[in-house]
């Protein structure tokens, strides 16, 4: 259910027939969906060979690569959209990958778990422990999430690095975005979904 909602929101942002790169594409479900619903062309990038085999089974073109090594195989502006769902926080250098995204793509779509969500804050403030939740199921010692952030953190980074935010959605774990999440997204949003581009396209 959750995945389907995130998918349909992202899908609504993607124009028909566009060229898409999906960073950390997992089993290729999103790309297969976009190909069906939006006739997109493109590739996934994935580090896990088992996921790559799933992608092959789904008929999705996928490149076996480590995103921490950058996107050096891709030319500037060679994609309409570069998508990164629930991957940014697991990167070694998230800010570098964001810059790479917007080098090879015109528009970036990024989703990540919001550490500013009130339940996370409560767990930190009163439990005195690192947050563990449905969207952040790991313990601090085994989490793949190296760089967790809040909506505010992300937006500050965007402002500092010349990234313009075109659209923002803060949703709960089933990707509903109610009135509260629209008014105080950093407190009430469990998952952040952004559409971004370069503030100065020529740069």
């Amino acid at each position: 259910m959750a995945l389907r909602n995130e998918q349909s929101l992202i899908t609504s942002w993607i124009e028909i027939g566009s060229r898409v790169l999906d960073l950390g594409c997992g089993d290729g479900a999103l790309l297969a969906y976009l190909r069906r619903e939006r006739k997109v062309r493109g590739y996934g990038i994935e580090i896990d060979p088992e996921n790559i085999i799933h992608c092959v089974n789904a008929g999705v073109s996928v490149l076996h690569s480590d995103l921490d090594a950058g996107l050096g195989d891709f030319r500037d502006h060679s994609f309409d959209y570069v998508i990164m769902t629930q991957t940014l926080q697991a990167m070694r250098y998230p800010h570098r990958l964001l810059a790479e995204m917007l080098r090879v793509g015109h528009t970036g779509i990024v989703t990540f778990p919001n550490m500013g969500y009130w339940k996370c804050r409560l767990q930190m403030a009163f439990g005195g422990r690192m947050p563990v939740s449905r969207t952040l199921p790991h313990q601090w010692y085994d989490t793949p999430n190296l760089h967790l952030c809040t909506l505010l953190d992300f937006e500050t980074l965007c402002a500092e690095t010349g990234i313009r935010i075109l659209e923002r959605r803060a949703v709960d774990h089933v990707h509903r975005s109610g009135l509260g999440r629209r008014l105080v997204p950093n407190l009430l949003g469990e998952i952040a979904i952004y559409r971004v581009c370069r503030a100065h396209p020529a740069a």
């Binding site: 060229r19 062309r41 790559i52 092959v56 490149l63 690569s65 195989d73 030319r75 060679s78």
Partner: peptide, 15 residues
Amino acid sequence: TRALLDADKQVTTLE
């Protein structure tokens, strides 16, 4: 692979 990407071909890789 890079040449295939530049030429906009369908390619899947495994290392």
